[in-house]
Design a protein around this nucleic acid. Sequence first.
DNA 1: TCAATCCGTATC
DNA 2: ATACGGATTGAC
Length: 746
Amino acid sequence: MVTRSARKDREPAEQLPVARVCVDVPLAHLDRPFDYLVESADDQVARPGVRVKVRFAGQLVGGFLLERVESSPHTGKLAYLEKIVSPEQVLDPEVARLARAVADRYAGNLCDVLRLAVPPRHARVETQAPKALPNAADQEPATGEDETELDTGPEIESETRPEAGREIEREAGPETGPEAEREAGPETGPEAEREAGPEIEAGTEIELETGPETEREIGAESGSGRKGAVEVAPGEGWGAYTAGAAFLRGLSEGRALRAVWGALPGEDWARRIAEAAAATVRAGRGVVIVVADARDLDRMDRALGEALGSGQHVALNAALGPAERYRRFLQASRHQVPVVVGTRAAMWAPASKLGLVVIWDDGDDLHAEPRSPYPHAREVLLTRAQLSDCAALVAGFARTGEAQLLLETGWAKEISAPRDTLRLRSPAIAPTGDDPQLARDPGAATARLPSLAWQAARQALQHDTPVLVQVPRRGYLPNTACAECRTPARCPHCSGSLGLAGARDVPTCHWCGRAAAAYSCPNCGSRRLRASVTGARRTAEELGRAFPGATIRTSGRDEVLDHVPGEAAVVVATPGAEPTAEGGYGAVLLLDTWALLTRADLRAAEETMRRWLNAAALARSDGRVVVVADGGLATVQALLRWDPGWFAARELAERRELGFPPAVRMASVTGKAEAVAELLSAAKLPDGAELLGPVPADDEQERMLVRVNRGRAAEMAHALHEASGVRSARKAALPVRIEVDPAALF
DNA sequence: TCAATCCGTATC
DNA sequence: ATACGGATTGAC
């Protein structure tokens, strides 16, 4: 114990003797930096971003050194930093700013967010891993032969109209978004949030033309042979999309373009994203890509290897052990690679001169972090793009309400394919019509497979192509819908969904608890309701029996297949576990759709659409997709036309009407009744905040929802955080869980 | 009048 | 958790 035994002899550093530290204490009232003195011996290592140990209220706690300053406003005596854990600057200043903004948005603590953002240290790895080259980050990225060949085919005059690049900058550049101010002080509380991240005033919605108009806005093909310019062949790759080539060009010029990309069916999306990454790297900037699961990550990882060559990217996988995880994190942190790809946690990856953030399939619920303060990868990445003034790409086959909002407010621009391209690339998609439960085919071995589906599958098998059968998993919440027209039953008062506790019960709102005795369907006027839980258990094997002699494969929770060969086989998969097929599926069958469409979830329709599109996208362009549902339903219509944009606009409009996110901001407060009441009474909620509930939750707890318009979102989060600060300062024993943008609303 | 003790609150 | 300050108590 030689180190600090000579306590009396400690002298503060000459320059910037004060260190501002975020202590690892998850109490809301302590969510601010604390100042410590830096001992002169530590002067060189006590740099921003290092892990430290400090004495805090008598205890030794961990923390991050946020910054070095000349003096402290603290009137009392400052303690010294007890220890610099390591000189490794694991908390990048850009990430620190982001973390603060995210903590504010989600009414959470900075230290909680930092626990998500910075992986646990692994001392051995730190010393073993190669040290950073002084300028590894700034090296000129490789160009030429080992880059993806974007310029395929002969020189053809681009089809995108040659409008000035200036136009793009004005329209899509960050300076004209609803948040014109780029300097969003991350610690300035409520005001900051409206600027950081795509917080958009409800009143500022701008109608934008889609389709050809967008082309003029982002679409700009200069045609110049400028150095670093990206050439994209028309009709291929990004060239198949209106504004696609221009987006890529913008990235290669280092511009902060923001786009929502709807991928064509059959698209090699990972390759497209890898090309976008390569273009950004060419501009000398870094890239962060987030995908939902390990399968998508593998695919993205391979695509990046092909597009960038070796040593240009690192994959951060949740499944990695602590050592490997930290090793790869350090590669990013030390700026040894310009591109980072990974699942959720990769959204925090440090990058040198961040140029682009990408999220693939942002509707996947795996993008929602389950640990406090429950941030969503899309929101984190968009906030990051906003704060760091870099490009953003929100991508998927489907489009979420949130992505639609980005387009409607003008924060981002649309990248999608023109209708004729879509027609060429789409499989034939057809509904079986009417109630799936009743659609039975005498020729099929199981009575549950409608004939159209069965025929499409048979045909595909005869052509020696695989068939994908998507079957949702069971276990959705009991809920009600109109017995006549199947419109989900909603509470007339607050638009929560109506549930039936028992068969003879009066339908009761899942949100506000009000009974809706006089309920009648707003669509058809019927007063009869039916429970919409699915009773039928249908295993994959059972379904496979419809095709005697065919090879049956399953892919689901227990065992997920990555890829199947391009030969006759029936592949039964649950949503999200669909393997890709060599050359694409000859037929894709979407079954048990009733269960999906009537789920007691605000996002039921959106989620259904997403699952269908993700499965249908795996079909060959000359293949067939059969959805076992009524073709009159809007969700089905959107699928048939492959129009996720239309669907998302419709969804968003409906949510505006009902007062649902993302048209409004909601937060849930869950805990014992008295604790919830205590917190809410302490919260100085903004004007116009609505309280919904209480509704019972698990474990004798209850849940309240707070609803405000988007312009008040930051104030609401601030108020809730402050209120939990009052409680934590009082050592309130009963825990309360605050969730902004709760994953499930009821 | 002063020390011992209790309680609430801040934690640098 | 622990440390500290202010209030309270009780003995001289």
